[in-house]
Each structure stands twice: as structure tokens, then as C-alpha cells.
Amino acid sequence: MDILDIADLHHIYRGHEGETIALAGVDLVVSEGEFVAVIGRNGSGKSTLAKHFNAILLPGGGRVLVAGLDTREEALLWSVRQMVGMVFQHPDNQIVATVVEEDVAFGPENLGVPTAEIIERVDASLRQVNMEDYRTHAPHLLSGGQKQRVAIAGILAMRPRLIVLDEATAMLDPIGRSEVMSTILRLNREEGMTAVLITHHMDEAVKANRVVVIDQGQVVLSGTPAEVFSQYKLLEALGLDVPVAAKLSILLAESGLPLPAHILTAEQLVDELCRLN
């Protein structure tokens, strides 16, 4: 079954200065085990979209189904939120407790999980994000990447079916970003956790199975990373980047080197170059 099934989703923000259309008919399906990256400029609507995944926002038009459950049905609200875990941008503003393990326990506590099982889940989740050595630490003394891993553990402890990272790497330094990325990649590849990554870092999007490009509240491009990043002119017009290796290979092709399309990483580029001779 599809974990996420979004059809013709609309969202309008109403402020004092009139209406802003944030989403104008988005269709998106995420299946079990997928790793989907959603990229777009700041203000493109990608974060608004993410907030529809777990009913923080409700559709102004169209519908969002989470494992078949309609997010507009109030009675299903907590089931939806248990199934879709969300890691937010600001590492500090999503950690509730003063001790790491207590924070990880926060979700299961809210769900009414029995104490013995909470303890098991906290242990397991901290191990999954490699933070078991920090279980009694105070969160404010951790690095940004560590805080986000604690946040991920807090989500895992709720046993969700989908993890959404809503620009969760935007405020981190390169080391923090790679910590979070390798954590989520491992969860996806080794444990089959379905994940959606909202980002504007192209080198992160490259690692997904599928990349969805959002602009002005609409999906403008969708496909494998190789397919999407071969459209570098379109992406640049949208104010987005292309991974450096992809761009370099396009430049080289333009200079007459018979390189294939769909190169994404430095290693791929070098392999292809060596194959030319």
C-alpha cells in the first residue's frame, strides 16, 4: 500500500495582506520503503507540503491519505501523527525534555505505551541513531547534528511508518548534515524505513530514490536523481543548484567530450571519463 497518497492538494494562507497560494494542486505518491527528496527554493511551498503529511495543516482542496487514512478526519488525527514522524528545521525547538532519554520517551509516553515497552523503545531508538552514549546528557550541550539525531530517535520510538525531515539539515554544519544524512540513509536502506527529505541541498537529494521539484506550489519535475539533475537549465532558472559533478559533466559534454547523461557524483564522473579511452 502507498504510505502517502496526495491528490490535487491546495493550500492558501490568509494574512492581513490578502491571500497567498502556497500549494496549487500537488499530486504525490510515496510507497513503502522509498526515499524521496523534495527540493525547491525557500517559499516554494515545500515546507507547507510537508506539514500536510501529518495533519499539522489540513487540505484547502484535494486530499491527503496516510496509509489509506484521510487526514481531514478528526478521529484519525492521532493515528496519522503516530504513523508520520516529523523532524523539523530548528534542532533546539523540538526537544522537550532536559535529558536525552526522557525526550526520546516523550512520544511513546503520549501514545500511552506501557513503561516497560517505552524503556525498550528508548534503548532501541538511541542505538539506531548511534546516540546511546549520550542518553543521560543534557540536550543543550549537544552539537546540532547530535540534537537532530536525538529528534530522529524520538520519532523512531513512536514506531512510525514514514519519517519526514522538514529541512532538518538546513541549520547544520557539514559534519552535522552528514551525520543526519548517513543516519537516515541507513534507516532507509537497512531497515526499510520510508523517508521524505525536504531540502535545498542538492548533494543530499542525489542520495534519494526519487527527487520531486516544487516551485510556486506545484510539482514541476519528478524522477530519479539522474533524470532530474540532467535538467540543469530548468533547475537553475528555478533558483536551484545542480550537484557539482553533474554540472561539470554537462560542461564537459558541451566541450565535446562524449560523456553519457545522468552523472551525479565525482566517482561516477571519473569512471566515465576513464572509460572514454
Binding site: W78, M86, E109, N110, M158
Partner: peptide, 16 residues
């Protein structure tokens, strides 16, 4: 973030 983690007050809450 708390709501997204299913926080809805003290009722039905268990303790770690």
C-alpha cells in the same frame, strides 16, 4: 513539534 509527537495533555499518558 509536541503536537506532531502526539502530545495532547496528561490524559492517557504513560511514564518512562
Amino acid at each position: 513539534a509536541m503536537e506532531a509527537r502526539c502530545y495532547r495533555g496528561g490524559d492517557g499518558r504513560t511514564k518512562f
